[in-house]
Write a protein that binds this DNA or RNA. Sequence first.
RNA 1: GGGAGUUUAGCUCAGUUGGUUUAGAGCAUCUGCCUUACAAGCAGAGGGUCACAGGUUCGAGCCCUGUAACUCCCA
Length: 909
Amino acid sequence: MELSKNFEPQAIELKWYKHWMENGYFKSVPDGREPYTIVMPPPNVTGVLHMGHCLNNTIQDILIRRARMQGKNACWVPGTDHASIATEAKVVAMLRERGIAKSSLSRQEFLEYAWEWKEKYGGIILEQLKKIGCSLDWERTTFTMDPDYYKSVIETFVKLHKDGIIYRGLRMVNWDPASKTALSDEEVIFKDVDSKLYYVTYPFADGSGGGITVATTRPETILGDVAICVNPADERYKSFVGKEVSVPIINRIIPIIADEYVTADFGTGALKVTPAHDKNDNELGRKYNLKALNTLDAEGKFTLQDLEDELINDLIISYAGVDRFVLRKKMAADIDAEGLLEKTTDYKGQVGTSERTGAVIESRLSLQWFMDMKKLIAANTEIAAAVAEEKIKFYPQKFKNTYSHWMDNIKDWCISRQLWWGQQIPAWYDANGDLVAVAASKEDAEKIYFEKLKLALGEEQFQVNKENLIPNLFQDEDCLDTWFSSWLWPIEVFKGISHPANAEIKYYYPTQNLVTAPEIIFFWVARMIMAGYMYKNEMPFENVYFTGIVRDKQGRKMSKSLGNSPDLLELIDKYGADAVRFGIMIASPAGNDILFDESALEQGRNFNNKMWNALKLVKMWEERTTNGGQHTTDNGQGRTDDNGQWSALWFENRLNEVSLEVNELLNQFKLSEALKVIYSLIWDDFCSWYLEWVKPGFEQPIEKAVYEKTVGFFSSLMQLLHPFMPFITEEIYHLLVEERADDLCIKQNGSLDLPNSKILSEGELLKNIISGLRDVRNKNQIKPKETIKLHIQTHDAATYKAIENIFAKQVNAASIHYVNDAVAGSITTVIGKDKFFIETELPLNTTSQKETLQKELLHLQGFLLSVQKKLGNEKFVQNARPDVLALEQKKKADAEEKIKIIEESLLVI
RNA sequence: GGGAGUUUAGCUCAGUUGGUUUAGAGCAUCUGCCUUACAAGCAGAGGGUCACAGGUUCGAGCCCUGUAACUCCCA
């Protein structure tokens, strides 16, 4: 067979993915094997594959493929999230493009458009995951608004309401004026902004002249002010407390009050209190029984609604409908015109913004549904304990603290959203808008309605008026926070809520690993743990692996707006999926951000190419094997020649050694390190050393046994690498031996033998000799083609005899002799404790040899000195552990011996 | 403001309960090679006061205290 010059990934990737699918290798059904389950964090249904997904899913694929090869029943569940806000925003934008306003549609009509959009664009991302080789069980694909899933979410809500954990209340919420919905605290991102502090004076109402000056970043809320507050200990204002001042522009008379809450050294030490537009002000307002006057509407525009009882002038009327940020400047100017703006200064502050729309959040008093988190956690102590006690393990561990800290300071969760795309809140109201029932269906709600009536009217009256009591209930218009459905994910993908105690949930739950970003530790991870303990009385997963954020070369977060996020599909086309997987995995330890650099993909592609060429080399030997048998032959130069047997023995041990190491690393989730170790095993040990050692001379045959061993090693290497780079490894596995009966994808890992340390250290010696002698050749400018005669002065000729044939070939030595004395007129070098004399035709350059040896000598003398110092220290000798002491003594003896050898060598040069 | 973490070669990172050769790897750099698998390659080399200042110890990259810079989370 003719193999291409370089590895060409495109065709083979398609071929193998199809083959794996056709054979159902990714499909999982419960059986007698141990399950190994991962539920994929469901991407937004409208999402497209980006670097973060690629990293995240590559990691999951590595874990799941490894488990599959370890004989476990590997099940990786795909799916998508309906992503309420994000998707609704996209649908609204799409409608706008078609000239349709959301407000012109009924809920039903809007949802029809949304589903149409979902069917068309939803799940593109799942197709893209196939390109990077993800071995997901596609038959299990789940969507968070599938009928069963939807039903489960509703049932969960009803039950939690019944348990008193979900409640409805008028609270200050985070309001997103762009999408006109409430948000949870977790959806608010704080950002640093350059703003201004406006120093506004409120004149005393008694006309005594003067006033009190407050510093505010938000003059646009001034018309909602109901008090001025100072710290009671603040000497400057003590006499002011109890006085009244007048609010600029509207001339409302408000009191000056005192409360510890105010910090005396911020601004002027006086705070304006606006209960309708600030959380803390709202607290103050409640404490002192102050009215909350709302002056901003749902879109963040000025509204007169709450001011109608007051004297409103034309200026105030002109504010109606003006956007908050425009209003800020306008009002500052108007206050200035009244002579009440003392000054403005620059100020670096923070504002909350919406995670989805980026809009600046308003605190707004609003009637919403909440979950009482403290109550929930108190009833399920395992939620906090499981992580604290490491029943659920976090990688890296530091996130354990983050989790605990959040748990300790948990706030109620606002779960209602003023959106249509999502699970509609199962609350029912009567014609007056009063809440009648929380129930999964209208029928249930009506039943409850009648029960309540019966209770209120009495049986008799109820029966009489039954006919006239038409319920006329309507459902809450709002829908639930997306995360209120995703928190059921690991349970409901196996129908654990909709069909409890079914065989699947029993088998697959709890899952083994969750791989996700630390950003959603509160949004999702913590809440899944809650749901797990509440509904299954069991943790949802054993391990959580937190990936880092993918950043560009300059450390900037990848984002659409910066345009620094490369097109993944293009990268896959250019480098191949295996190379992309390699590139993204090679430098991404758990929890660390990864700096994405295309050169890492090049490294991956080069690695592919290296393996491809190794394959070509091995295939060249296939037709030229010989049955020389196990005996050694005389190669005519007085050296024994084992035809590669020793090399094969060495590599077998090296392979075992590294395989054990890789196992250990993977058990600790050190994926990146494991890949590095495999990379080096293949490139350095296998290609650079082993293949060169067993490589026959030009057009010479290779020992059949060695050839077969080599094919076996190569296959094992592919098996070791397969979870990381599935495509090329499967391809090479099949090309190495044509007509294989099995596929690497499901090949089971065998048990590993402990390596023989003697062989391994001999291998190290061999490498050192070759490197050392090549260095000498380089430094003395001996051309690769020129042969040398090698004389070795050693006490251990036996070890050398076994490997001399190998290093002779590698350093192009025509002959090897063992001597007892220095060889005159040769280049001298010291490797380990042995002296090597190199005879060449070239004139000798003794200066460079001397320099090298002297440098080495200096280093050894310095080293010896430090060891001697240690050993000369009585306290060390008394206190150090015996094995440490013995080691230091050995170091000393070794150094002294080496120094002696080098000194001797220097004498004869 | 509260909390967590990081600081080791030009870059990205390893460095296990303190002792294994006066600190390791990959990439990048430099030198020499078109050697019949691979120039997307081969062979070799150089490069670090382990952020800084103290301390504990016979012994510190690792433990303690302080300082500085950076990052993340929370308010």
